[in-house]
Amino acid sequence: MLAVEVRDLSKTFRSGWFPRRLTRALRGVSLAIPRGAIWGLLGPNGAGKTTLLSILATLLLPDAGRVTVLGHDVVREAGAVRSRLNMASGNSNFIWSLRPPEILAFYARLYGLYGRALARKVDDLLALAELEPHRKVPYHELSTGLKQRLALAKSLVNDPELLFLDEPTLGLDPDVSMRMRAQIKALREERGTTILLTTHYMREAEELCDEIAFIKSGQIPARGTADALKRQIGIGDVIALRLDPPSCNRLADLPGVLECTSQDGRMECIVDSADKRLPEILRWLHEQGVVVRDVDVHEPDLEEVFVELAK
């Protein structure tokens, strides 16, 4: 059973009068997301992530293509899906002077809650988002982390079957974003919510998602599980070594080593995971009697992935 099915979706934004600018935000995107999955959409700024999510959430009308969400056509039957999905984004805003319980109650009412069920839902969500001590604080005085938690809480007012999260950890401290990720995982585990999230952090996509789609310039050039993608693209963490003697070609044969090159007296090994392979490589080098003068580990950033993908 699919939660989302998209075929040949495109969207062009028109802005300005003269000169009139056209932005082709999506160019023929197709994807299928099974129910209960956590799906990641990974791409740089301007790739079209928000555009795609907005179309799926009925906030934006597509130009061409077919989009089915929870079994309904997202254009013709938008009303039928709205009550069953929700969305939160890292740059959400709410009315500045309202307080967290007021904001949650307002949206819960819009989704049809009333009476005791409404009061209970607001309390539950305040507890979930750890916003109880901040009940009386107006929205604009909340910290970024609290704002983001409130946005996530708001997106749960209707117990959505399908949840869209647009850069949910944008601008958060590492420990706060770690907690946010744990909460996202718990949502799927405890409620079976299907989640489609966007991010431009590769690590985040890797940690959370069953499957990842790379999106770039409105197209999806690659998709799959994190491991499959890395294998497909041949990109992983880079371990740079300065050795004595300077070159050691047999490194390439070690398990987990995808590629090995030597330049300027340095060996560069691309491995699937530096955490796992670095100790093994160092032990092996030691056994071979090779002296390691310097080690440098670096995780590839998205730009490198896309450079690879563009080839």
Binding site: S54, A57, T58, L59, G79, R82, S83, N86, M87, S92, N93, F94, I95, W96, Y107, L110, Y111, G112, K154
Partner: peptide, 21 residues
């Protein structure tokens, strides 16, 4: 206007509400 000033318009139109409400 409140929503436009606070840049929070989308949440309202994401929800199953009509102009009558």
């Amino acid at each position: 206007l409140f929503d436009v000033w606070s840049k929070s318009v989308k949440h309202q139109f994401l929800a199953p509400v009509g102009i009558r409400h």
